[in-house]
Amino acid sequence: MAGIVGYGAHLPRHRIKVEEIAKVWGADAPSYKKGLMLREKSVPPPDMDTITLAVEAAKNALKRSGGVNPVDIGAIYIGSESHPYAVKPSGTVVAEAIGATPDIHCADFEFACKAGSEAMFVALSHVDSGYMKYALAIAADTSQGAPSDALEFSAAAGAGAFIMGKDNLIAECLFTHSYMTDMPDFWRREHQFYPQHGGRFTGEEAYFAHTKGASKALLKKSGLKPSDFTYAVFHQPNGKFPQRVAFELGFTQEQIDPGWLAPRLGNTYSGASPIGLTATLDVSKPGDLIFMCSYGSGAGSDGFVWKVTQRIDEVRDKAVRTHKLLDENLIYVDYGTYAKFRRKIKMNE
């Protein structure tokens, strides 16, 4: 089957600590830190958005692609819940910036936190069917939680990009499974700035039911068991959920560790499991099996089984590693700066 020819991530350097947000709203920082396993989250500066993150992630994917010519990319799909325009695609800007226009198909995807894995699924399918040589899937978000809402402690920014192809693979996709029901757990109506959610209703019946539904079906389809995998990556709205779902499915902490980014990155929404996959590929070895399952409110999950090839050793350091972006040279901001960066302050027009 088709797979990943090049991958890359991009993250803002700015971070805000849970304590800094909690201080402003009189919230209990320890309960977020322990209960939800969130320590800090990435903050995009004002000149960074889904499009700019997507461009940089795509450039990193090209660097690891072994020389894919951007004009040979037949489709560009960007999954995000924070496309800068309500009408006007993000993908056109990204395609133009990487030099992939004009013979290319483009669509922006939206499915809460699952939009990125959707883009990956569709890109893979196009390539696997032989319809095109390469397809670029990008998962990017600069999500906003309403001030003082629980989501404000997690809503973060980042992007992961994957060039799908059939030859010269870094990781082959062995199986996929998608799982979806209609689920009113989280939404944002047209013209609204912040999303709303069903509180604890986003847990058991939403995240866990769908993640497990897709994961179990994928394990069954593939005939593999959790212990067959070297690594596993789950959607991570916080640090706690992916850990719990991994354990309940029979995966271990060691398996999720490289892609378990939420405690320090926050929830990068569409980017969450895709960026987790980039961090996991960074440390994987030829032959490793990687289990991946996204989740998007609304609600659904896309599952993938990846098998890492020999090429990983050759390409992993052709672009910056995700953990380097996550761990090094961070700039911590206070709530005032964060509020300014995220345009939470009412200004004169």
Binding site: D47, M48, D49, I51, T52, K59, P84, V93, A97, E349
Partner: peptide, 17 residues
């Protein structure tokens, strides 16, 4: 060099990168 948003015309105008 990084790709960034350079200007945005308030909340309704075109974005320049």
């Amino acid at each position: 060099i990084e790709f960034r948003r350079i200007q945005s015309e308030s909340d309704h105008g075109v974005l320049s990168y």
